[in-house]
Amino acid sequence: MEIRMDFLNWLDHETSMKILGCLQDPPDLVRVSSVSCSWRHFVIANGLCKQLCLRMFPHFRRVYCVIEPTCGIEKALEVGHSKFVEWETLKREHKAYAFLAQGCLLFPFKECILDAISASSTDDYPVESIRNTLLQGDRSEGRPSYWSSKGQHDIAVPETLVYKLAADICVITEINIQPFQAYFQRDSPIYSAISVRFCMGHPKCPMGDPLGEPLDDTADDKFIWTYSSLEFPMAQENSLQNFKLPEPVVCIGGILQIELLGRVQRQEADGLFYICVAHVQVKGRPMSPAFGAEMLGPSGKFVLKGLSWDPTSFLPEDDDDTYHGEHVHGGVDLEQIANM
């Protein structure tokens, strides 16, 4: 067979970039970078994995630098860029962005809510706490389980529910909300909202851990929202209503806010409008334990922490332990609340 030459040697830079730029799958780029020394150098030096990842998920343009266990932030930001440091940075980015892009596509799909942070108002705390929305269905241990806003004369007054997600970085695809039907009231009214909107972002300051009791709070002074969805109409129906985002959204910083816009149901007893929610689910792919994020002040820039490159990260868990675990956790808290 005729000996062919390596195209990286006889094509101009732009054409070589174009050919490799046609590869759309992160593992393809990784394998191409393992073909030979010159190919590896080409893929890494041109940051092709980073480019692909940013093309797929522009949210990661806010990455300030990439660190990993063997390279802390001091080392990553080392000044006096020598060629060696520069190359180490490129290599680290190559590895991290390839795995990140693939993780955003293929890490297992899970329930992403870790805990409730706050509601804009709660009518009767703790009986009607936002924490009840972590529990599936509209009753728990024989008692109604839901969150209720305070009552308003004006149907336009919005409410917000804020949740902490299971990982610093989550790729969120859909949100399910079940409005609460007050089956114990006459005519069983359903206290839904007219529409919902979702915001994602990060806290202005690092949050304490554990979170403590969810209190009434206007969330806007504590969080910075970097994504806001369109408004989705909500039906006045007692069912887990599905709101699918037009495309997967990368939430960096692990905070999700549900805005409940407009009230539809008046309570007979006091003539006020309320919004009540029985259950909330957030579906997506948490990037932990492979990746973490450390926010750098209010700018929205963050340090991407590559923590492990374990191929088993792609495997679904043996059972739905995490999922049920969340609910057990919620249940324990609810018991504590009940004992208060």
């Binding site: 759309q24 799958d25 393809d28 394998r31 191409v32």
Partner: peptide
Amino acid sequence: IQNRSVEYVRSFFGI
């Protein structure tokens, strides 16, 4: 070369 092994890519380009 999509979804192919490293060895395949090498022989594809004669590298």
